[in-house]
Design a protein around this nucleic acid. Sequence first.
RNA 1: GGGGGAAUGUCGAAACUGGCAGACGAGCAUGAUUUAGGAUCAUGUGCCGCAAGGCGUGAGGGUUCGAGUCCCUCUUCCCCCA
Length: 853
Amino acid sequence: MKGFFYFRNTRISFRRQAGEHALYGRRITVVTSETRVRARPYNATTVEEKWQRAWEEAALHSTPDESERPKWYALTMYPYPSGDLHIGHWYAMAPSDAAARFKRMNGYNVLFPMGFDAFGLPAENAAIKHNVHPHKWTMSNIERMRVQLRSMGGMFDWDREIITCLPDYYKWNQWLFLKFLEHDIAYRANAPVWWCPNCQTVLANEQVVDGECERCHAQVTKRDLTQWFFRITNYADELLDFSTIDWPERVVSMQRNWIGRSEGARVVFKSEQDDPIEVFTTRPDTLWGATFMVLAPEHPLVEKLTTDEQRAEVEEYVSWARRQTEIQRMSTENEKTGVFIGAYAVNPVNNERVPIWIADYVLMGYGTGAIMAVPAHDQRDFEFAKQFALPIRVVIRPEGSDLHETTMIEAYPDEGVMVNSGAFDGTPTPNGEAVARVIEWLEREGIGSGEINYRFRDWLISRQRYWGSPIPIIYCDSCGAVPVPEEDLPVLLPEDAEFEPTGVSPLKTHSSFYNTTCPSCGAAATRETDTLDTFMDSSWYQYRFLNPHFEDGPVDPDKAGKWLPVDQYTGGIEHATMHLLYARFFTKAMRDIGLLNIDEPFTRLYNQGIILGEDNEKMSKSRGNVVDPDELVNELGADVVRLYLMFIAPWDQGGPWNSRGIAGIERFVRRVWVITDETADVRPGEVDAGVEAELKKSMHRAIKVVGDDLGAFEFNTMVARLMEYVNDLYQLRERGATASPVWNEALRSLALLLAPSAPHLAEEVWERLGQSFSIHQQPWPEYDPALVVENTVEMAVQINGKVRDRIDTAVDAAEDEVVKQAMASARVREAVGDKEIRKVIYVPGRILNIVVG
RNA sequence: GGGGGAAUGUCGAAACUGGCAGACGAGCAUGAUUUAGGAUCAUGUGCCGCAAGGCGUGAGGGUUCGAGUCCCUCUUCCCCCA
């Protein structure tokens, strides 16, 4: 019998009468009828606002630099201030925040800063489009995003906020550039570089994806320009060493591929006019099989070597190739195209005359822009030779079989024994033996040398844009490129620049910025108008967070010693070969010039997945599938959003948003509040010992599994464990567990377990339980291992691998005892029948399998 | 073409070193609460079958007392590099 009445405006419900009841498949006896105070509603908006204010007033999230506790530097990639914190930001930050909070509850002094990656193109595009200054646009976006970030309830230490577009920050960007220049890590060179016609700027190789601009997806083209570079390739081998960091294998292999180390030889062929043509090959053991050469259409010698008869055809081909994208050119699917230029080269190993072709599958940007073609042992060369009826010569014979030029249908790129290779005939190729011997010989003969080639190039850092750190260089007719003296930093971005969509940097037309005097000779001079790639800002921001107002250098050495390196970094995988590679390079470069004494910036890395729209597509305004976190927070509260994001799927997987699924979390949050509010004041009384034992066990188990999952970033199962615990509490309550003195402890534990993931709800529950502010300064509860292990289990009994019955048995029961118990079951006896028992497999606590036959 | 990852109910997913597949949630169904419900509570819910029982982790094979998990072949999808 249930019902309710009102007493002093509070709805009081009275419940089951004394007597026998069926509940959850058990018979229970209610001794006295109980009355129950119905929970007050939980108003997330009010509660969350209340605690956010309280945390700020208590400066709860300011991290002291001095502490008895061990340090833990947790960092999540800082956002670009686009003006809106979208659900992707929440997905990146909310679980990171939970992990950071968990670390703090586990006794660490946790630094968890936040800032804004504030330079970049959108601000400048907004300036052109809406006539707002980038600075104003960016700063008002930051204002708005701070409010949104606050609504998330993160434990960000705002005292250390950095905003990269402020002189306070970019001064040190410029300073670092000058130091790099001083130490020959930065240099200026003319090179063919990628140009994005849409962004009106050059791009680094890393920022070109499939021949498109990584930002705007416009097709990029090559241009020859004089630009500033960083010598990231000097660190290639060190960047290939991942032994001291714990990063996802995926990112490691992406960086490894990107760096693209290959060992081989550089060999000099000569044209018949005696021009040296260098090629790089990883297979110098196939040199004798080179039957032609292929140059990239852009190769500087093409112009010179082309014969008059071939010139028209060659020119036509070159201009056609220029129009192709790199992807089209590299595709193995394509039919091979190319043109003979009429000239011949001499193969230095056997003085053979080989024709020189040009073809689009050879790229100027890789290796030397020229290859020796060995059609018998390279598939692309093979296809090219077949296409144009060029000679093929086998020089590697596979072990135990034969290979004939005329019958081959594809190249043989594997190991074997060298043939048709003069003195090297008979040399086996496995284990690099042939390669090593040929290199040795090439060096002795002076026609080549062993070389290690890398796929990646030096980092191009010049950008023809306004909204970035000005490169602190002055050009003087007599002194050349002169660094701006350190004391003149920062070179300020002029605020009164004119934005015209002309493709010319506003800095070029700003005469008081552009015109200056040479710091070295005092003559009239002009400033560099390019700005630094904004990826430079994010390459070292993790160090500036430690003391963003430090005035004697980019990094405060005292704080660096205390906090570095970053213990846990989290962010999207899309930065694998950009930001994450640049940051590693910067760390090593800064170490080499004495600014840091660490080798790697981020000890542990975790990449969260992507939240898609409900239609399983990437969220975008044009698709209309964008989920607005602000709306959700207003409606359901931040804790619900946080918990739901964690619950959706494993964090590294992401997945589609589901607006119905979030209802489950809503219910869960309500259930947490209801059970606490309704039972917080229950006085201990008489309780069944078994029920109390179950309550204890459930609580200790929850402490263990929730903690284990949080520590392992398994947020989805962590939420499931919390739900199981709350479900347990509801059932135990019905069985009278609230009368136990353990009940209140169980509720307190629940609050503590919720604290990392649902910080507001946890704090409210904590207060309701009469505990003092703040739950976020409490230690993580401890569990008793003895209470977590099961003493008895329901064990499956299998006959020939099929489950026939289940028996309750002690975890550590002896085999013969368990068999006896199993044989007592009629179902087991029936399954065994009169067959002979051949074998018994018994794994204590797990399974009993009786093999009969 | 090479490398890496994935495939489990209607859906999101869980499953420790091989040991009761489907925890937790969504959805659905039935019932309760007699104003209503997109509220709450209870019960059920892999498939076939009235049942006993059988079948089930992309497909096929193998190892094993026992395979979602290990091995081989294949299919599809995603990512990276060519």
